[in-house]
Amino acid sequence: MTQSPEATIIACGIFRKELAALGYSHKGAEKLVCLNSMLHMRPSLLDELLDGMLRGKAQRHLLVYGDCCPHMDQFARMDGVRRVAGVNCCEIILGHDRYRELRRAGVFFFMPEWTRRWERVFKKELGFTTQETAQEFMREMHTRLIYLDTGVGEVPRDTLADIETYLGMPVEVFPVGLGQLEAALLAGLQSLNAAGDA
């Protein structure tokens, strides 16, 4: 019987610290590769990168991504490839029910890694270079801002205060921990192993 090749976890860099806290690293039993989380803003480029990493490869891969690029569903159906459950990083970290409940309530989420880069995201990537436009947009589109505290690292209070000032809305700190992410990873790896055994 041929031994299944080791799995590689390809993850969005937004989870880099959380995955390290759970014991996943580039030297671990499952090799970890993290891609830049700003690829979320360039879904076609993320498509190209993942296609290059996955197509024609014998290795098994688990994608720690949401529905973040147009062909993610096709990647997740390739032989030897699976994806964790969740439409985006917030659902992966929150779990399905809590994510839907908060999203329905109009919440905008800040993941820890993007919180550190909030100025780049809002001003450079989204183009909200004026506070007035940023505030109006957020008020029109969202009811609350929530920082998802995964418990990895300190809550960046000063940065959250800067965000509150710029966007004109309070940011609530919502402890989420790593339980949902860990469960999603284990379920994904089990699915990958089950497919390999078939």
Partner: peptide
């Protein structure tokens, strides 16, 4: 070539 914010404006 234009941002989400510019489209919004």
């Amino acid at each position: 070539r234009i941002s989400l914010a510019q489209g919004y404006v």
